Amino acid sequence: MLIKDLKTEDSLYFRNSAFIDSLLINKKSSTLLKTAMHLMQARRVLFFAHKYLKFRPSTYETKNLQPNYGAMNLLQRDSIVRFHFKEALRLGGSAIPGKSIDISWLSSNADKLLFKADLADIALAERIGFETGKTTDLNLSDQDIQTLIVSEPKGFQQALQSSLDTAKIHSHLMDTYTLWMRKHNSKPEELQYIQMLIKYYFYSRMPNILSNAWTTYLKKTSPLH
């Protein structure tokens, strides 16, 4: 597919990846293959929004191929991206790769996962990357965010949900993080790593205001503490 992208004109972007949808609707495709294809298609559609288009958007339409991604608006393509990430997560739990199969290539940030990730982890991490780019400020109060950053691991999930509920905030990003935390509830080290990513997300939005809370958190979690 990537070689085709290099050899063919830009307007064939979605035609070059049409095989992905063909494999997804093929009943003979394995669960592992479908999981991989869902992840690939999510990233393919997502990348189109950030791609420099050499031609008019209508040139990228595939009227004789469905779905016609080129004819969709941004909100419709975002919905497609979420669908593929959800399906990858749903199938990932039962798609068990062989010991010799390296699945890290399915992740765009494998080097940032500090534990051995399975397909479900990759699906969740990829969606988090997508939702982070779509999320504006969550409008939580500075005090709420400071409290969340310094909160203990055992009470963090409840505190986060309580803050979101009180502020009447629905966030695709935090929903995805919550799914990821629940998946690792029985693994303290992985769970605390995911919580750290959430806390860093909050800190990175307002580093000047939250520097004291972030420093306090780092001191509490330091092995030398």
Rank of each mutant, 00 (worst) to 15 (best):
residue 110 A to P: 01
residue 90 R to D: 10
residue 76 Q to N: 01
residue 50 H to E: 13
residue 74 L to H: 11
residue 88 A to Q: 02
residue 63 K to Y: 09
residue 74 L to D: 14
residue 100 S to K: 14
residue 19 F to W: 13
residue 79 S to R: 10
residue 81 V to C: 07
residue 113 L to W: 03
residue 106 L to K: 06
residue 76 Q to F: 01
residue 120 A to L: 00
residue 93 G to Y: 12
residue 22 S to V: 02
residue 95 A to G: 04
residue 31 T to E: 13
residue 61 E to T: 09
residue 25 I to D: 12
residue 95 A to K: 08
residue 15 R to E: 15
residue 84 H to K: 04
residue 55 F to N: 14
residue 54 K to V: 12
residue 115 F to L: 10
residue 90 R to C: 06
residue 15 R to N: 14
residue 34 K to I: 01
residue 98 G to P: 07
residue 109 N to G: 13
residue 29 S to W: 07
residue 65 L to G: 06
residue 59 T to Q: 14
residue 123 A to V: 02
residue 105 W to I: 13
residue 124 L to C: 10
residue 18 A to Q: 11
residue 63 K to V: 13
residue 106 L to A: 04
residue 101 I to E: 15
residue 87 E to C: 03
residue 26 N to M: 07
residue 62 T to C: 02
residue 81 V to W: 02
residue 30 S to M: 04
residue 102 D to T: 06
residue 111 D to Q: 14
residue 104 S to T: 13
residue 69 Y to W: 08
residue 119 L to P: 04
residue 45 V to P: 04
residue 112 K to S: 15
residue 71 A to H: 01
residue 55 F to Y: 15
residue 73 N to S: 03
residue 35 T to C: 05
residue 66 Q to C: 04
residue 86 K to P: 00
residue 31 T to V: 11
residue 64 N to R: 09
residue 48 F to Q: 02
residue 123 A to W: 07
residue 59 T to C: 11
residue 26 N to A: 08
residue 50 H to C: 06
residue 19 F to Q: 10
residue 118 D to G: 09
residue 55 F to D: 15
residue 39 L to F: 03
residue 70 G to H: 00
residue 50 H to W: 08
residue 35 T to I: 04
residue 113 L to P: 00
residue 84 H to C: 01
residue 14 F to T: 05
residue 40 M to V: 10
residue 43 R to E: 15
residue 57 P to Q: 07
residue 91 L to N: 06
residue 95 A to N: 05
residue 67 P to V: 00
residue 88 A to E: 07
residue 113 L to N: 05
residue 35 T to M: 06
residue 53 L to W: 02
residue 94 S to V: 09
residue 121 D to L: 09
residue 92 G to H: 07
residue 100 S to E: 15
residue 114 L to I: 12
residue 49 A to T: 12
residue 105 W to F: 14
residue 29 S to E: 05
residue 69 Y to H: 04
residue 73 N to F: 06
